[in-house]
Write a protein that binds this DNA or RNA. Sequence first.
DNA 1: TGACAACCGGAATCGTAGTTCACTATAGTG
DNA 2: CACTATAGTGAACTACGATTCCGGTTGTCA
Lengths: 192, 192
Amino acid sequence: MTTTVTEHRRPLRADARRNHERILEGARAVFAEYGLEAQIDDVARRAGVGVGTVYRHFPTKEALLGELVRRKLRVFAENAREALAREGEPFGVFADLLRRNAEVCVADAAIQHALMAFGQHISMHAQVELEELNKPTAELMARAQRAGAMRPDVTVDDISMLMCGVSATMTQTGPGFDWHRHLEFVIDMLRR
Amino acid sequence: MTTTVTEHRRPLRADARRNHERILEGARAVFAEYGLEAQIDDVARRAGVGVGTVYRHFPTKEALLGELVRRKLRVFAENAREALAREGEPFGVFADLLRRNAEVCVADAAIQHALMAFGQHISMHAQVELEELNKPTAELMARAQRAGAMRPDVTVDDISMLMCGVSATMTQTGPGFDWHRHLEFVIDMLRR
DNA sequence: TGACAACCGGAATCGTAGTTCACTATAGTG
DNA sequence: CACTATAGTGAACTACGATTCCGGTTGTCA
């Protein structure tokens, strides 16, 4: 239903496949280091390819950013599914999931910046990934709530919202700004 | 000590003073409507002056933004001082201050965007205003804490941080994103 | 009212980045 | 080993938007 055209094409040539990966990794690194204002030329240089090659793989800068965001969301989702399989006190498991995913975030806060700058536009192209993340998260929350360890009135969307706030703290370098602390405040608030 | 050079200059000509105000107001309106990507030309048009005039008053776009931010901070501070003078249950007074200032924020979330985008650079030029806001806020918190109505471990800096998170929610149009809700979560968490 | 300094307007300039394209290189295939 | 569809390259093109500049205007003051 949401299958892309890609699947109908013959497989990429070996060098193309290799470069695709290199570009994505280069982009991740460069955006992590310089933020959104990093240029495509920088990405190309870091990846060791020409600009043209970047554009052969991603039609626009925004598309490239979009793919990076989608990958990040997949990591979040993967962690969530893993947490779902874990044994243990539900609230603790959930809190640890938040901590772990936050850690994934800081790894390159620039992507976070991207999410906020390009905002809804990009996230509209990540519906699937968002869904994939929200499903296990909701289940995890339901468990904690049934166990009476989590406020019964919080929803998955609240979590997105609150974590979005935490990640805002990450990109800010204010005095006394400490996202770890922010996150613990949030976790505390979710508790019973 | 931190007095500006302006004071040492002869007063502005009447038309210049008028334009200064118009530009600031036009900028506020335009940035509120189109966000940071609004152009100086737009500001000029809205203010009913030429671009050159804008540049006569503010050397760069960033400087203009900076002044807007500073003005906003002064409003926050004003509200805080007012709250300080108010009678009543300390925590409630403080919570209402947060609500009121949040309301001031949304009025033009673009300024908020500015704070996050230009980030630390602008806020470095708003030290004075920040101080002016933090002083009464801290006093208000101390009262609530002495009354045993507020968590004793939160600081003024925590408030900046958390409110920064709330304002991130304002600029985001995610599904199920509701900054009022976010704010109430925060207030709840601050409570004893 | 006359003179001039301060001010205004907005076309023109300049720098910056995203994007294209004409040409070259190479993986895959028979 | 040819042959060709794919892929790569980077100089050149473009669009856009901040900033400059100078001829014309206007407040102010004697």
